Simulated scan of single mutants.
Amino acid sequence: MIRVGLTGGIGSGKTTVARLLRALGFPVYEADTEAKQLINKDRDIREQIIHLLGKEAYNEQGYNRKYVGSLVFNNEELLQKLNEIVHPAVANHFEQWCTEKDEFNVVFQEAAVLFENGNYSRFDKTILVVAPEITRIGRVMQRDDMNKQEVVARINNQWQDDEKMKLADFVITCDGQHLVIPQVMNILKQL
């Protein structure tokens, strides 16, 4: 089984590429979605996050993403500690998921911070999705009802695309001007 990491900065279009891969019949593990479920359902993770960030990290609806974001996205040390709680749990969950997909020759994991946390080394190949920062800001502001300053803070907590390109095996440009399907099909031929 070939394991492919699919990443890109916030608003880059990696979810669009993941949807396309899924439509083509490939299994795609969405690390951010799975992390949110683990954060809400796993008692041990919940207790560790409360210990780190306080009871306000959870409310009646579950994980208080906005509150946590307001703390960690301007505090590198807190963000790292939060990631040290969540990332190992997601990695273990992905391994379990892969065993359930053993009939597939290729599986993908969509993850926002694949290079930043060093997890790229666990994959056979990596795909980086890129888009101009102005495009990314507009997408995220519209999608997540955030202001420009909040989006820029999140972008600044991720590596710049040129840093990621040095480590990526493949790059897909998702800027509204380059066709995504031919780029994806070309990569699939090479896997």
Rank of each mutant, 00 (worst) to 15 (best):
V86D: 03
Y120E: 10
L6P: 07
K101R: 08
H51F: 02
S12W: 05
N157H: 13
D42T: 07
G176I: 13
K125W: 09
V152F: 05
T173R: 01
L82V: 04
A35E: 11
R3H: 03
T126M: 02
F104P: 04
P132L: 01
V107S: 08
Q37Y: 06
L188M: 08
R43M: 15
A89T: 05
P132S: 02
Q37N: 08
I2T: 09
R139A: 08
V152N: 05
Q158W: 11
A112R: 15
N147V: 02
E100Y: 11
E47P: 03
E77D: 09
F94S: 03
T7R: 03
L20A: 14
C174E: 06
I49L: 01
V107C: 12
F123G: 11
R46Y: 01
N40P: 15
Q158G: 08
E133M: 04
E150N: 13
C174L: 07
N74T: 07
N74L: 03
Y29F: 03
I2P: 10
R22K: 15
I49G: 00
N119T: 10
P27R: 00
G13D: 09
L188E: 06
I85A: 02
E163M: 10
Q190T: 12
E163V: 03
K66C: 00
R19Y: 14
D32G: 10
Y29P: 04
G25F: 11
E56T: 01
F94Q: 06
R65T: 12
Y58E: 02
D161E: 08
N74R: 09
K14V: 07
H178G: 00
N92I: 07
Q96D: 07
F94Y: 13
F104L: 08
R43P: 12
E150H: 01
P27T: 15
P182Y: 14
K81D: 02
G5Y: 10
M185H: 04
R143G: 10
Q142G: 12
R22D: 10
E77W: 02
E30Q: 15
I45A: 05
I137C: 05
L191P: 05
A23S: 10
G54E: 07
A111L: 15
F123A: 09
N83K: 11
T135V: 09
K81M: 10
T16F: 03
M185F: 06
N156F: 07
E110C: 14
A23I: 14
I45M: 14
Q96H: 09
F170E: 12
Q190G: 02
N75K: 09
A23T: 10
I127Q: 08
K164D: 00
K101M: 08
E77S: 14
E76S: 13
L167Q: 12
I10Q: 12
I137Y: 03
F73W: 00
D32N: 04
A31N: 15
K125Y: 13
L71D: 08
P182G: 12
H51E: 05
